[in-house]
Design a protein around this nucleic acid. Sequence first.
DNA 1: ATGCTTTTTGACGTTTACGTAAGATGCAGT
DNA 2: ACTGCATCTTACGTAAACGTCAAAAAGCAT
Lengths: 145, 145
Amino acid sequence: MHQSDPTIEPTDSVSNRSDTRRHYTIGELARLFDITPRTIRFYEQEGLLEPERRGQTRIYHDKERVRLKLTLRGKRLGFSLAEIREVVELYDAMPDGDVRQLRRLLELLAEKRAEMQRQLEDIRLMQRELDDVESRCRNALADRT
Amino acid sequence: MHQSDPTIEPTDSVSNRSDTRRHYTIGELARLFDITPRTIRFYEQEGLLEPERRGQTRIYHDKERVRLKLTLRGKRLGFSLAEIREVVELYDAMPDGDVRQLRRLLELLAEKRAEMQRQLEDIRLMQRELDDVESRCRNALADRT
DNA sequence: ATGCTTTTTGACGTTTACGTAAGATGCAGT
DNA sequence: ACTGCATCTTACGTAAACGTCAAAAAGCAT
């Protein structure tokens, strides 16, 4: 019932013991992030994930889970999968990447950073708008009582 | 990007000049926000804009320009045109909207606000990731010299 | 062994947000 | 009147990001 394989020992030094289940099936991972397996396979097809293959079936370790988490966060922030992939690829090639690649990565990071700044400003402005509309709305509501 | 930042209001405190051009053609507006006329027409078709018609041609006043500005900001923050439209429609109906509509608007505003909060958190996390990747990257670059 | 669930690989469909091309119309300057 | 843009409507095209079957293979529980 419970997984009881004593032959498997952690190869992970620093990890959150709370969610280190070593690996996930595609379905488990999907439930974990509230997306569909289809989405996960699609991301793989787009070069964002490279799960291990145990026979035919995909096995996701923590590294892939983190990648997926970052991918989803990037998406929420409006980045396209292509943009995310470029960063991911460069990041993977980092340890033995050449200088040109490293510079390219720094360049991309600076871009992302700038975009984050613009978003912060947009959020600030949007929150003001919301405040404004809300107060007007509450006034209108008060007038109607 | 040689244009002035459209998120900054073109100086438009009510000018006393009687022949100040308080309106824009579709092309002018497009250049102002660095989008295409097609996009503007599309937004109209989706119920986000309702320009005056002078004959066949569309005329945009400040109100419509502000709407467009808010629409684009909403888009940058990841809202769909449908979501933006709902807010816009309710906002327009506000002065004489019924209580149910006003409550609905407040509800929507709360949703948007919550989403903004989530985005702020995402940005915070993303910035940390960027910091992390960047420092690793700089180290790798230093090792290579 | 036999169901039952999950996963896999296609392949085609869908939605969103426009792009693009065609043909008509209008207006400004010469 | 003619030229040359800008704009209009209509309609088909497209890219991104999945959704939705379908059929087969693989696990697992009894």
